[in-house]
């Protein structure tokens, strides 16, 4: 028996909220909440870069992932690499050679679907910083229960009971998969059905950033 969520059904995302520009020092900052999971991201850049790390033709992207408790270890490095590769795909790094773009992610509370929350808030923070991007991204996590049911945006209890947890990141132009990260065993058919279920909500998420940014009166 899988635990049911009180606030929404299995094929719906939890209530999402986002706030930009809440920190005064970074060039861009955003916080994103999916249900109770909440993450805050700060972006600095383009800024000076150490000579050993500089690229002559593009900007150096650095991601620092800070968990809520504990010292960052191997799994944090793994998340950093995932998020960094995702950002390198969408940020037009060739426009800022020999500079660095630093993204710092701080986990405030993890109540399931942490990776997708991090990617979403990183995208909003990059948007707030005004860094040139080729498109927006939206991330959705889904879990496969032992009965084969798909649960979108699972809570941590549902993640513990799940047979497999899959996270996908879609880009806003053609709605294709940029990043895919999975845990657990599943069949190829189940993979495709998860992709389809998540893609529907990924598309909706991409439309919302425009609604949340402030409007400027001319």
């Amino acid at each position: 028996m899988t635990s049911q969520r009180a606030d929404c059904g299995n094929l719906e995302l939890r209530s999402q909220s986002c706030e930009q520009n809440l920190l005064s020092r970074p060039d861009g900052s955003a916080t994103y909440c999916q249900g109770d999971t909440s993450v805050i991201v700060a972006v600095y850049g383009p800024a000076e870069v150490k000579q050993s790390k500089e690229f002559l033709d593009k900007a150096t992207l650095e991601v620092i992932f800070k968990p809520k408790v504990g010292i960052p270890g191997c799994s944090e490095k793994f998340q950093e690499r995932l998020i960094r590769n995702t950002c390198e795909t969408i940020v037009l790094t060739a426009l800022h050679p020999r500079s660095s773009i630093n993204i710092i992610i701080q986990v405030m509370h993890n109540a399931g679907s942490l990776l997708s929350c991090c990617v979403n808030s990183t995208c909003m923070a990059l948007l707030d910083a005004g860094l040139p991007m080729s498109c927006l991204v939206a991330a959705v996590t889904c879990s496969l229960s032992c009965d084969g049911d798909i649960i979108l945006d699972p809570t941590s209890q549902q993640e513990k009971e799940a047979k497999a947890i899959l996270t996908f990141v879609f880009e806003s132009r053609d709605n294709e998969i940029i990043t895919s990260n999975t845990h657990g065993i599943y069949s190829i058919k189940q993979y495709y059905s998860c992709v389809e279920a998540c893609r529907k909500y990924g598309f909706v998420s991409c439309q919302s950033p425009l609604g949340t940014t402030n409007t400027v009166e001319q």
């Binding site: 390198e88 880009e171 940029i178 895919s180 999975t182 065993i185």
Partner: peptide, 27 residues
Amino acid sequence: TNECGELCALHKPGGSSLSESQIQECV
């Protein structure tokens, strides 16, 4: 992949987007 025809992981860390047919080919 494992011997029962199931997938244990499909890891794609960023990079160019992939279409369904390309994923099918990889699998």
